[in-house]
Simulated assay, not measured.
Amino acid sequence: MSAPSLIDLGMRPFFQQQLSLEELEHCALGRVIELHKSEVVLLAGDEPLRFPLNPNHDPLCVGDWVVFNDERLVRGLERQSLFQRKAAGSANERQLIAANIDTVFIVSSLNDDFSLNRIERYLALAKETYVEPVIVLTKADLCADADAIRQQVQRLDALLSVHCVNALDSNDIDLLKGYCQRGKTLAFMGSSGVGKSTLVNGLLGHDAMETGSIREQDSKGRHTTTYRAIKWLPEGGLLMDTPGMRELQLSDAKDGIKLTFAEIESLAEQCRFSDCQHINEPGCAVLHAVETGALSARRLDNFQKLLREDAHNSATLAQKRAKDKSFQKMINSVQEQARAMKKNR
């Protein structure tokens, strides 16, 4: 097996144009394939390279392109796409998920854990970053009405690619291999236990990722992937598996939400009032569509829920950024005063 070239790893003019002449002469480029608490793993040739993480650098993410030399990481390049979410729990922080992704497989199993609302949430995240979403519905061999559920998902967007698969069937895996092209990076996202790691193993052709079972009482899975990692496919493309996410809080994803619910946005243009909230206003075209059955009440409810969540989280994070900026300004001011006093002694 030959070592992957930079083109195999996803290098393109967007990234090359960010390099200075000095960096071209004295540094090298690598792709972040693993990220741990204290170190980062790069792929830039035959063997992975490990570097300690510098807490003073901007946060890195799996999928990032970085400039490095023999001694250290120099800097990360601007990202072409970035998946992020509000960190789980109450912390007012953003969590970086994956960078520079071309296609995201949104994986949902055809068992009791199936949820159109959750798929719409992932779609909003994908559309916010202008990454191609592909819906993969797993465990089709265990579902009697798999095609009926597939049609429910297809109705979310007529142009959406939707596949029902048995992750252990090589013919079904071959359907997904068409997305694995040279230089393209694919990410798998979904809840725990939906079969992401089994799909990754099928596409790689060997058991690179641990797989696990699901709880029978609620069809919920256990985490088998514990960190994000990129795997190189010799026939073309890179695969990223991500830990299952029970909680995917959206922030700064308003445009992605509106693109995901494009038909509601289109209907809203026909409302009597330009600031219509589609709750109980007279002349609301959106509510009329619900009453006539042209739009499902579930879809409208989820649209409004995601917009409220995004607005809340975005405001909370913006407040934290402002607070952090103010605190940093105070530190800089104190340091400047200390330097001035020292100089005048």
Rank of each mutant, 00 (worst) to 15 (best):
M1R: 11
P4Y: 05
L6K: 08
I7N: 04
D8T: 09
G10T: 05
G10F: 02
G10E: 00
R12F: 15
R12T: 09
F14I: 03
F15H: 05
S20T: 12
L21D: 15
E23F: 07
C27R: 12
C27D: 11
R31P: 06
R31D: 01
H36E: 12
H36M: 03
K37A: 15
V40E: 00
L42S: 03
D46H: 09
E47Y: 08
P48R: 04
R50N: 12
F51P: 02
F51T: 05
P52Q: 10
P52Y: 14
N56W: 05
N56I: 10
F68C: 04
N69R: 11
E71Q: 15
G76K: 08
L77H: 05
R79Y: 09
F83K: 02
Q84C: 12
K86M: 01
A88P: 06
G89N: 03
I97W: 08
A98L: 07
I101Q: 06
F105H: 02
F105P: 06
V107I: 08
R118N: 10
Y122W: 15
L123V: 08
A126V: 13
A126N: 05
K127N: 07
K127G: 04
E128H: 01
T129R: 02
V131W: 04
P133E: 07
V134N: 00
I135S: 01
K139Y: 10
D141M: 04
Q152H: 09
Q154N: 10
Q154I: 04
L159N: 10
L159C: 15
V162T: 07
C164P: 00
N166V: 00
L168Y: 11
S170I: 05
I173C: 14
L176S: 09
C180F: 02
K184L: 10
A187S: 15
F188E: 00
M189P: 02
S192W: 13
S192H: 10
G195H: 11
L199Y: 00
L204I: 08
L204C: 06
A208C: 04
T211D: 05
Q217K: 09
K220P: 03
G221Q: 06
T225H: 12
T226H: 13
T226Y: 15
A229S: 09
E235V: 03
M240E: 01
T242Q: 12
Q249K: 14
A253Y: 02
F261V: 07
E269V: 15
F273R: 07
S274G: 11
D275P: 09
C276N: 05
Q277S: 07
L287C: 06
A289Q: 00
T292R: 15
T292S: 12
G293R: 06
G293W: 04
L295I: 11
R299F: 02
R299M: 01
L300M: 07
Q304K: 11
Q304T: 12
L307I: 13
L317V: 03
A318G: 14
R321A: 07
A322W: 13
K325D: 09
K325Y: 13
Q328F: 15
K329N: 13
Q337Y: 09
K343D: 12
K343W: 05
